[in-house]
Design a binder for these strands. Structure first.
Lengths: 257, 257
DNA sequence: ATGTGATGTTTCATTATTTGAAACAATGAT
DNA sequence: ATCATTGTTTCAAATAATGAAACATCACAT
């Protein structure tokens, strides 16, 4: 089986899901014309897309404001997703241990279609913590997980460097030059860990290490992330060691899958 | 604004989501032809729908088996759903209290398009427990929550009795005659609670009470559900009292929204 | 090896559907 | 009262989805 990548995609379905993508955690509600302008699709079309999704329960229409939000059908379907379930159930206890030692939010990320995909996390108990969501993707060039996934897999690295004609800047610290990024990735490869010092979000520091399978191939990355005020320089080495021990445990647990 | 219900729906989107519905907790993986036969859509069409959804990350294609499963895009979108968030965050602590007292799984349900929609739940700690999911809908005529929502809102009642030409039977205990159901609803209205004695699933008992807003209008229902072996007759009265106290607390917390 | 029946996938002409412009009704602001 | 919005519907024109058939590939018999 399996011949070639793909023929032609169904237009309406692509439109429907690109539309749904615009419903973020920040912008939760959209009107028809408002969203139509944003995505550059005719208002008439947008209306029919949205009312179709609404009738399916995928979108929810607030009766008062007449604006749309993501509906419960998505919640239901999202809860049924099982992919990586086995990976997560095996790795979660390890993340927990790491989180308890470091006392910061710990993430497990993998490479997915040119981006960093968070497939599991353990939150720390502190009040000030990261608002991240499992299933979310982040840019690779300015996150700890991402830089690890680039530095330890040259396929990812080449794919990313060729695909992106420019590196989006999020903070003054974001690396925006490809040559600078290449240097950084080499440094990361040497020191065996990555530091994201407020390159994605001001005030947010992230420390990440690679996870290999039992053949030595990179399969994932784990990180500890928290507010910069809590990350002291003299702690970093300890944190890296804790993360590395966690990564080794993961190799034994999921390195054979 | 708002003129009439809806014009014509987008065919492809409807097909895409009815297709996604077939990915259940039991049947998590589907092949193209297999699913095409099940939903009665041409294999060629089904293939294109599925490969479109796969390219969007909505479906995930297992590289080994070549079969499809629900993908991480759905997980991500599902996590972004905010509808009823405020209601749930306010009511959740109350459900928790009730669950601790009764030691059974507690649900919060509302009326949604002719069905019972579970918008929150608290699981009991016991090994034998209900496998229910937030966002799922259930039939009204054979569940505790549903019968409450029918008995205390004559609009729901009429809507449901007119819309459904026959009451689907799930167990020998399911009420399948409309007249019988009307009697049952009157009884429930008198006694102020509903008992679902294995009418939806054999071995499953459910006890439900209404939740009113501060104007006395029905807005939701809460229930305690568990295996019939644990529901003793002499406990029922106590359970009803605990549920009623919970319902009153909910009136104060969410009765003004 | 060989055949059989299953699979996922692609092609192409026919068909049915989505599309955009315009107009309508309803709202809120000036 | 006017104006600029909004969500919504209508209709012909344009486009995209469709089904039949065929192909490549695999798994399991023979």
């Amino acid at each position: 089986m399996s011949v070639k990548p793909a023929g032609h995609l169904n237009n309406s379905i692509v439109k429907a899901f690109t539309l749904l993508e615009y419903f973020s955690n920040v912008k939760t509600h959209w009107g028809v014309r408002e969203l139509s302008r944003e995505i550059g699709v005719h208002e008439s079309t947008t209306y029919r897309l949205m009312s179709t999704l609404e009738s399916l329960g995928v979108l929810y229409k607030n009766p008062e404001t007449e604006k749309y939000a993501l509906g419960l059908k998505l919640h239901e379907l999202g809860n049924r997703v099982k992919v990586f379930d086995s990976v997560v159930s095996l790795s979660h206890p390890v993340l927990n241990e790491v989180a308890l030692e470091i006392e910061e939010t710990v993430h497990l990320g993998i490479w997915h279609k040119g981006e960093v995909l968070m497939i599991d996390k353990v939150e720390c108990e502190k009040g000030l913590r990261l608002d991240s969501r499992i299933g979310q993707t982040s840019p690779p060039h300015c996150t700890g997980l991402g830089k690890i996934l680039l530095a330890f897999d040259y396929i990812h690295k080449n794919e990313f460097l060729e695909a992106s004609d420019r590196l989006v800047s999020f903070t003054p610290n974001t690396i925006t030059h490809k040559d600078k990024l290449k240097e950084e990735l080499e440094k990361i490869h040497r020191q065996q860990y990555a530091l994201d010092n407020q390159e994605f979000e001001l005030g947010l520091i992230c420390l990440a290490v690679p996870v290999f399978n039992n053949k030595g191939k990179l399969i994932a990355a784990i990180s500890a992330a928290g507010p910069s005020v809590r990350f002291k320089k003299d702690q970093l080495k300890d944190y890296v060691e804790i993360l590395k021990r966690g990564a080794e445990k993961l190799t034994h647990k999921i390195g054979n899958l």
